[in-house]
Design a protein around this nucleic acid. Structure first.
Lengths: 216, 216
DNA sequence: TTTCAATCAGGGTAAACCCTGATTTTTGCA
DNA sequence: TGCAAAAATCAGGGTTTACCCTGATTGAAA
């Protein structure tokens, strides 16, 4: 059976390379996204079987994009494609509703395997990471809808924080999120109060440290 | 004429993806290395035309591997394949003897172009980075090694940039440097023009990338 | 049912941003 | 050594954005 896949990664080389490899294996790459927001839009339009989702992307990161896609296109499965094996990041991704997690240093065959498994409705975890999970928790992943809070920062606030740290002005953020400028101002003020950081530069550094935005 | 290439990258997905893309274009990938040490060994054995070299690799990084290959296999050209556009890293790579520098977010066509150019004996720099190596008159600075400053940023401007990126307000910066607010405003404006970055968040990220400020 | 997230308004001050134009000091190099 | 270029300094005066209150509504979650 044909598997229809969307690739989301901010690095063109990876997008194109992955597409080339998947197509060799007979997987149909129906669309390519270069950030989380594009991934959401394309997932809604194309209703793919699987999304290969990079975690750190500009504009809207992979964790948030995963949560939104899981909500709006529930039958679409998501595999996180990451460079990091930090437990914190993995937890976030599965909490957001990912079905698989593989590393960029994994072999392509493993990635192909993951797509097959996830498409069948199973979970897939890179073996090295799976070992870490079984040791610490015992139980595997459960489908949690609500994302764990991040230092008291709400989902929307985190989204605003990312855009602020990426250099967007309030007006542009308001347009992107289709709300009023006043709303964004309120969010930004609340973020600053919660974090105790009162400058754009400070917020930017915080967002970089926390992996909310990348330096690329 | 056939171009013989070695790929060195610690991420299997990238190695295999790149190989697949290059072979589609008729480039011969004669070997694949997953760290710098392997890259050196394989370069000596196979004497390739070009090595695609990732910079951050375990065991032995791309910079050292580049220097060694340039010394032991002088006719082999090296293209750095990086995720970062930090000046320090670029300088190091070219100092080590690289002939090209491209980003992983570049399109594959650009990478293919770079291979062609480098194989002819030319240098190749990703346009976005090349722009940073251009002075205010629009002249390309060829000698990257003794480039005095980064895109025409003066000493004082750099000082102001650091304070801006650390979250200081114009008034505080003026006080610290014992000059008027207007002077700082002028510096900041000039920095923005020179860098083509027009937000505090952008300046902050730039400063972090360049090591002007740290993440604490 | 009370809390919290998300939405938005009014109205204000401070700061950033953007010109033009100018003087003085430092510095590269012919 | 001398001179032109670049760096550093500052002013005036404008627009825009950020920042900071108070206050209010809706809907969802606890």
């Amino acid at each position: 059976m044909e598997i229809r896949v969307i690739i989301a990664d901010d690095h063109t080389i990876i997008r194109e390379g992955l597409k080339s490899l998947l197509e060799k294996k007979g997987v149909t790459v129906i669309a390519i996204a270069k950030n989380g927001r594009e991934a959401i839009d394309l997932a809604i339009i194309h209703q793919p079987d699987v999304v290969m989702m990079d975690i750190s992307m500009p504009d809207l990161n992979g964790v948030e994009a995963t949560a939104t896609i899981r909500q709006k296109v529930p039958h679409t499965k998501i595999i996180a494609l990451s460079m990091h094996s930090s437990k914190q990041i993995i937890d976030k991704m599965f909490a957001a509703g990912a079905s698989g997690y593989i590393l960029k240093e994994s072999a392509f065959d493993e990635l192909y395997n993951a797509i097959q498994e996830v498409n069948k409705g199973n979970f897939y975890l890179t073996p090295s990471i799976a070992r870490m999970y079984v040791d610490s928790q015992g139980n595997m992943i459960k489908d949690i809808d609500d994302m764990p809070k991040f230092k008291g920062i709400s989902k929307k606030e985190r989204e605003v924080l990312q855009l602020v740290a990426e250099g967007e002005k309030t007006r542009n953020i308001a347009e992107k999120l289709s709300v009023s400028i006043k709303t964004i101002e309120t969010h930004r003020t609340n973020i600053m109060k919660k974090l105790g950081i009162f400058t754009i530069a400070g917020l930017t550094k915080f967002a970089i440290k926390e992996g909310i935005v990348s330096l690329e």
